[in-house]
Design a binder for these strands. Sequence first.
DNA 1: CTATTGCAGTTCCCTAGACGAGTAGGCATG
DNA 2: CATGCCTACTCGTCTAGGGAACTGCAATAG
Lengths: 260, 260
Amino acid sequence: MTIDLAAVDKADERPPYRQIAAALREAIRRGKLGPGDKLPSESELVDHYGVARMTARQAIQDLKAEGLVVAEHGRGVFVRSVPVVRRLASERFARRHRDRGKAAFSMEAEKVGYTPGVDRLSVTEAPATSEVAERLGLAVGDAVVIRDRRYLANGEPVETAVSYIPADLARGTAIVESDTGPGGIYARLEDAGYTLGHFVEEVAARMPTPDERRALQLSTGVPVMSVVRTAYDTTGRAVEVCDTVKAAHAYVLEYDFPAR
Amino acid sequence: MTIDLAAVDKADERPPYRQIAAALREAIRRGKLGPGDKLPSESELVDHYGVARMTARQAIQDLKAEGLVVAEHGRGVFVRSVPVVRRLASERFARRHRDRGKAAFSMEAEKVGYTPGVDRLSVTEAPATSEVAERLGLAVGDAVVIRDRRYLANGEPVETAVSYIPADLARGTAIVESDTGPGGIYARLEDAGYTLGHFVEEVAARMPTPDERRALQLSTGVPVMSVVRTAYDTTGRAVEVCDTVKAAHAYVLEYDFPAR
DNA sequence: CTATTGCAGTTCCCTAGACGAGTAGGCATG
DNA sequence: CATGCCTACTCGTCTAGGGAACTGCAATAG
């Protein structure tokens, strides 16, 4: 064990497992354990601190719950590396202007070592649920086109996105195709005569459901950001609702808005 | 035990603790266990499923990590009730216009049963750290005024906020006082001749540090939203950085921004 | 040289207890 | 009747292990 860890302090009122967790946390914070580094194994901790296995495990459990480390079965526990995808709200739609968007995007990509991608795309049509209907200004049960997809960064899933578009807007356009063409569905909506006016995003954070944890391959203790975006055309009609769930460790959202 | 829970299924490939967790999760989802209700105690689970106590505990641990339940020492484990505070970005600064702001605010408050408040206010002056200096366009070590405060909702802490203002802007104004007067520091900055131009907010989510968990009285498994807002005047000079940490379960942030 | 097998190391999952400490409620004593 | 004690029940923490599952690597068989 290269990092030096103090012994459990009897005088310390904190329980041993917290002291051990704090020592490891401190080692990470000070950079003695960098991203990707391997923590001491359970038995090393047992030997070093003279505690039971479950006690060492509980310390590691705490760090996992904080999202600071990731356990890999049969390999060890590793400090999480934090690749952050930083996205400015306005930039996220810059791709409508194809060339400019591509340039801005790849520049951003280079900066953070981000290689984008989509897998698991599905396009279906179904009746609107009450949540979607309310946001789109439809009646419950009205037909909507649903585009469900998963985004990857560096080969790892980081976001799921489900778009809902009123079926009468989407039918007969590339919106119902797998490949929506240059500029994506927003460009197709504008082609169809719906000039986009503004977006509303609702941002929340919470722990993932088991389903979400599976879909995003999240380990214990990683929260998700839920971003529900509603797009309105210039007449104020809601033309799309996009419900995204992002792995929190992979995103910093940026919003720029005027005073007053 | 009023809710019916199936026995552990040997054929199920999932480990018992996950099966138990799933059964409880399902009972909550179906409404058999509502907010505030008490879960079966550890020993009840032990008797019912025929597992060891640590196994039952781990199932509950999972639910705690998801933020679905809260354990109270000596009383039991309870389904969490989730009060949500919804804040529109533009509304959050409406208080600059005192009357209009108050009205909008209390209307909002009535809707969600939200009673605001601040405790633990401190105002100090210190050299800028590199993070703050970069955002404010200062040199590291330049003096900044630091306003550190904690916000309450319904008597419970839900947010900590630390504002950093370049000391040369703040000195001699009410910004260095406990009570900044009507309209808060933004109004004082405008009084001093810095007309606000726009804000940039960086939103991220993560699990809290132990310090943050203490400050916000968060139980296990509740993530936080970190919102760092930088305020710029009309000349593009950064006049304030506000670093907030919000209890995730208490907030949905809303942003409205134009297309293009 | 390749492919398989075996093994050591590691984590995961679980058992079967123990003591401590906080809570709630019944009960005896004053 | 009021107070305080006592007990039952709760979760928190800890001990001391064992077996299963997975990984990486080396040795072995083809």
